[in-house]
C-alpha cells in the first residue's frame, strides 16, 4: 500500500520467555486517527513505546515514512499518561524546552514566541508563568498537548492521555484534540480504555486481545461521518452498533479469541465496519461486517 505512513511489521516483544505479543502487523495511513483498545496488560503501551522509539522490539520492525525507526525522534511526539511535565519549569518553560530541542539554532525570543503560539492554541493564555504544581490536572495535560504539538511532529502518540481527568475536563480536551488534529491533519496513534472516547475520536479502532501473547483481533472502521459533534454523536444510527461491537469484544471475545480463531492471520487483520445489523453476530467475520456495512 502506497499511502501507508506507519507500518508495523511483525514486531514481537518478549521479557525472558514470556511474549507480551508476537507477530504484530498494522498499517496506519497519513492523517489517520487510530485508537487501540484492549484490557490492561495486553501490551498496548509497549507498542506505543516501540513506536516512540523508547523501547525496541525483540523482533520485527516499524517503518515510518519509508524508514525503519531506530530510537526516539522529534518526528514522533508522545503525550504521556502522567502529564510528565518538568515541575521546575513554568508552562512556557516546558513548551519552550521542546521547541528549543526542535529548533536548536533559534534565539530564545523565537523559541518563546513559537511556544506561546501553542500555549494559546490549547487555551492556556495567561498561565504561561505558572508552574505545573499550580495547575489543575486538565491544564497540565493541555501543557503536555501543547508541548507535543509545538515540535510539529509527523505523528502524535498518546498513551491514555485523558484517563486521569474528570469526565467534564476529558470531554473538553477530547473536543480540542479532535479540532487540532483535524486542522493540522495529524496522524495519531492513541491508546485508550474508554470506548466512547475511541468512537468519538478515531477513524479506526484496533482491538487487542488479552496478553500475554496478545494479538490484534480486528480493526474496526468507524462508520460515523468524519464530521461529528459531541452533542449528537451518540444519536447516530450506527453509534450503538460500533459501541456494542467493541464492548462485546472486550467483555466476551478478547479472552478466548485465540482459541476460537485458529485461522487468524496476524498479517491480515480483518477490517470490520459495524453497521445496523452487525452487532447481533458476535463472531462476525470480516465479510459479514462488510456486508452489514453495505446493507
Amino acid at each position: 500500500m502506497s499511502d501507508r505512513f506507519i507500518s508495523i511489521e511483525g514486531i514481537a516483544r518478549r521479557f525472558g520467555t514470556t511474549a507480551i505479543f508476537e507477530d504484530l502487523w498494522l498499517g496506519i495511513n497519513r492523517g489517520e486517527f487510530v485508537c487501540v483498545i484492549g484490557h490492561s496488560g495486553c501490551g498496548k503501551t509497549t507498542v506505543l513505546n516501540i513506536l516512540a522509539g523508547l523501547d525496541a522490539p525483540s523482533e520485527g520492525a516499524v517503518i515510518v515514512d519509508g524508514q525503519a525507526i531506530d530510537g526516539p525522534s522529534l518526528d514522533r511526539a508522545v503525550i504521556f499518561q502522567g502529564h510528565s511535565l518538568l515541575p521546575w519549569r513554568t508552562v512556557l518553560g516546558n513548551v519552550a524546552y521542546a521547541v528549543g530541542s526542535r529548533h536548536r539554532d533559534w534565539t530564545s525570543a523565537q523559541v518563546n514566541a513559537h511556544a506561546q503560539k501553542f500555549i494559546d492554541l490549547v487555551g492556556l493564555t495567561g498561565a504561561e508563568h505558572k508552574r505545573p504544581a499550580e495547575l489543575s490536572g486538565g491544564m497540565k495535560q493541555r501543557v503536555g498537548i501543547a508541548r507535543a504539538l509545538s515540535i510539529e511532529p509527523k505523528i502524535m502518540l498518546m498513551d491514555e492521555p485523558f484517563s486521569a481527568l474528570d469526565a467534564l475536563t476529558r470531554g473538553t480536551l477530547q473536543d480540542e484534540v479532535r479540532r487540532i488534529c483535524q486542522e493540522t491533519g495529524q496522524t495519531v496513534f492513541m491508546i485508550t480504555h474508554d470506548v466512547d472516547e475511541a468512537i468519538y475520536l478515531a477513524d479506526k479502532i484496533v482491538l487487542m486481545t488479552n496478553g500475554p501473547g496478545a494479538v490484534l483481533a480486528e480493526i474496526v472502521e468507524n462508520p460515523l461521518p468524519r464530521e461529528r459533534a459531541r452533542n449528537d454523536v451518540h444519536k447516530h444510527p450506527y453509534y450503538y452498533a460500533v459501541r456494542n461491537h467493541i464492548i462485546d469484544f472486550l467483555v466476551e471475545r478478547s479472552k478466548m479469541f485465540r482459541a476460537e480463531n485458529a485461522a487468524h492471520d496476524p498479517r491480515h487483520v480483518p477490517l470490520v465496519r459495524p453497521g445496523l445489523a452487525a452487532p447481533a453476530l458476535a463472531n462476525a467475520t470480516p465479510e459479514d461486517g462488510r456486508k452489514a456495512a453495505s446493507a
Binding site: 523508547l54 508522545v78 521542546a98
Partner: peptide
C-alpha cells in the same frame, strides 16, 4: 530521576550532556 522526565528528553532527542544539565541536575 523519574523515568518519565528522562523519556521526555529522549523523545525530544536531547543529547546526553544537555540531558544531564537540563533534566537530571534540576531533578
Amino acid at each position: 530521576v523519574r523515568r518519565e522526565w528522562l523519556n521526555v528528553a529522549k523523545t525530544l532527542e536531547v543529547g546526553t550532556l544537555k540531558r544531564a544539565f537540563t533534566i537530571i541536575l534540576p531533578a
